[in-house]
Amino acid sequence: MASSSSSEGEGRRAWVPLASRPEFAGVTPLPQDDGPSPVVAIAYRDDFRETMDYFRSLYSSRELSPRSLLLTSLAISVNPANYTVWHFRRQVLEALGADWTEELEFTEGVAKRNAKNYQLWHHRRWVAEKLGPDAASRELEFTRKIFCLDAKNYHAWSHRQWVLQALGGWEDELDYCAQLLEEDVFNNSAWNQRYFVITKSPSLGGLNAMRDSEVDYAIEAIHANPENESPWRYLRGLYNDENEAWLNDSRVHSACLRVLKAKRNFKFALSTLLDLLGLGFKPNQEIKDAITSLRTSDLGEAGSDSDLANSICSILGLEDPMRANYWTWRKQQASSSS
């Protein structure tokens, strides 16, 4: 939970009971009906209980008024995950002819404490839709701020992808991905976004046009951190179903070789070679030697595995014991196909 700060909404300041606020005069609080002997009975805090009692009252009479809007703000501040409260808020906003920019500011306040709340993000999208393409740059900036706090926030990424597709703003997106990956090259969300951009951006020409330069980009990231799962999967994704091209890109073979020669963090390099071997790859002597040199004495003599693929699986079974069964299975696959 976020700690309290001065920027937080009204609901977190000293609680002024609604019963003593003039704007709520005449509202009869309506308690939650939890049914008989509740299954999962709920204990309510006083401010929560009072807010929700007033909310239910105004909601049940469908009072579309400024004080209802205020009450939804209060209810959201005590519990931003309540679908019904957001639902009512949208009805009130539409009835009152809301200032949508002001509403964006409201959601930004809520996001500071609840950046992982589904309802908030859906509401934000609803408001941005009202504003149309003019909202694109503000929405991209908003998610950028969220990523400064948590660069893997799933909701914010989903929102950002929606903004790009529905409202536009693709121009700087590839640079933005590069920036995030510079900050943290292990950020799988940023790698995913990069793939999203190169495959979907209307200005980049699609995967075929981008493949060549992206292979270099991924390989550079691999050399910096060969244990990083993301660029390896990205590299494979660049070739998608194009097995022939994947098989024949010598840059991939050299990258694997270079990682093997360093003799550490070689799991994904070996696994990639295993994939390639399965597709008919014929490695040169240098690659064969590099694989053989990774064998430890536990694995016995180099010739004891029937071929290179078996050898790779034996090495990985020792290196990655948690997934020993997976590597054993890969070995069986390799044997049955050879």
Binding site: V39, A41, A43, Y44, N82
Partner: peptide, 26 residues
């Protein structure tokens, strides 16, 4: 005994998803 845990954050936020809570618990 979830009902007896007065004032817990969990209790407060669960009002709106009590049906989910019932499914998980039951």
């Amino acid at each position: 005994s979830v009902e007896k845990k007065k004032d817990s954050f969990e209790s407060v936020v669960m009002e709106h998803l009590r049906l989910n809570g019932a499914y998980w618990g039951l």
